[in-house]
Each structure stands twice: as C-alpha cells, then as structure tokens.
C-alpha cells in the first residue's frame, strides 16, 4: 500500500479538465518522478495531490486516510511538504529565518532539525545570516528544500527542483534528494530532466494529456525505447 496516493484524478482550473484520470502513488523511502511533455498536467497532478486544485472526480489518500477535501494548510500539518517551482523562498528573510518559517507549525525544539538540514546542505550553514534573495539559484533551491524539510515531513513534493540550475548543481541536488529518500521520506517530484531524474527514481509516471501513458521503475523506463524516443531525444 503506497503512502500517498492520488487515484483516477479528474480536474482543472475551471473550463476543460487538465487531469483525465491519472493515478500517482508514492511509498515511503521511495522516489517517484512524474514526466511528460509540456501541458501533460505534471504540475497540475502534483498540485491536485497537495490540495491546491479541487478534484472533480477521484480521491487522494495519505496513509490510507482520505484527504481529498483537506486544505493544503491542513495537509502540511499531516506531514506533507511542498516546494513550488518558483518563488519558493522568502527573499527578504535570512536563510535561518526561512528555515524557522518552515517549522512554523512546530512547537518543539527545532534546532536538531535545523542542524540536520545544515548537515545536508553545508553551504546553508555558512550563509545562515544572509538574505535568501541574495543567494545563487542552486543555493535558493537548497533553502527551498531545507524549508520544506523543517516540518519533518513524511512526504516531500518537489515541483521541478532543478529548473534553471547548472548540471553540476543538479547532480548535487539529486544526490541530496537520494539522501532524503534514504531517511525514509516519500519523495515525489516533477522533472524536465528526464534522464537524470529516472536515474534516481524508484518509480516513474509518464503522463500525456492528463492520463497515465507509462508507469514503471526508473530503470525500465530508461530502457524503454518508446519513452526514450518521446522524452529524451533518442
């Protein structure tokens, strides 16, 4: 039984549906990657799982509990964390304050978690008193992921975490995401860089026009000639 599951989801932002019955599952200690061409509904599926989009049909469960009607804020309380693709840090606040805000809902001591984040992303420890808006793109992404981890989530959702960062930073970031998975967290991400993402993925979902086209392990999808032809330029 997967930990977070969106089943047969239909919905959109008013007007025509963008999601046409796709299903996404992710288990703890597993990385799931959503792939697909532009307009396939990748980010929309992610937002639907987080409750930022009302589903017309289908349901979302977390640890077996139906959370379809739960607001995003309440999903944060249930242990879900979301890193948006853009504007994902508080630019006017310091790195440390960004992390503190991530832990806003917690009443216990957050210092251990913050140290863990600093262990994961050592550069952040160095820049902890600098405003997040002054950091480079890759460092900002680290702050964004770090902020999400501060809630000690059980599910971490990343919307194109490597958009606009250099290949070296991307590899580094994927390494960190593997570490996060190894800590027993369920990781779900939308990615443009299909090849690199599938390399670390336990399971991959290829969406086309809001429907599941291929679903398999990362390795199998990488090996599939059809997937390679469509999304990885051969």
């Amino acid at each position: 039984m997967s930990f977070l599951s969106g089943q047969a989801m239909f919905g959109g932002y008013g007007g025509a549906d963008i999601l046409n019955g796709c299903t996404i599952d992710v288990s703890k200690g597993e990385i799931a990657v959503i792939l697909g061409p532009n307009g396939a509904g990748k980010s929309t599926a992610m937002k639907a799982l987080f409750g930022m989009l009302n589903l017309r049909e289908g349901k979302v469960t977390l640890d077996g509990v139906d959370i379809t009607a739960t607001s995003p804020q309440d999903r944060v309380k249930l242990g879900m964390a979301f890193v948006p693709q853009t504007s994902n840090v508080f630019v006017s606040m310091t790195v440390e304050e960004n992390l503190e805000m991530g832990a806003y809902l917690r009443d216990d001591d957050i210092n251990t978690t913050m140290e863990q984040v600093f262990d994961l992303f050592p550069i952040l420890a160095e820049k902890r008193h600098q405003a997040a808006g002054e950091l480079s793109g890759g460092q900002r992404q680290q702050v964004a992921v770090g902020r999400a981890l501060m809630t000690q989530p059980q599910v971490l959702m990343l919307d194109e975490p490597t958009a606009g960062v250099s290949p070296i930073v991307m590899d580094e970031l994927f390494d960190r995401i593997l570490e996060i998975r190894n800590a027993g967290i369920a990781v779900l991400m939308v990615e443009q860089n299909a090849r690199q993402a599938l390399n670390i993925a336990d399971i991959g979902y290829v969406l086309v026009t809001g429907e599941n086209r291929h679903t398999d392990t990362g390795e199998a999808l990488l090996a599939s000639p059809e997937v390679r032809r469509s999304f990885m330029g051969g």
Partner: peptide, 11 residues
Amino acid sequence: DNEDLALLSGI
C-alpha cells in the same frame, strides 16, 4: 514577502 509560501509553511 511571499503569501503563498507562507501558507505552505502553515502560517
């Protein structure tokens, strides 16, 4: 600074 992100942080 960022209303949407504040909501995502549970503020």
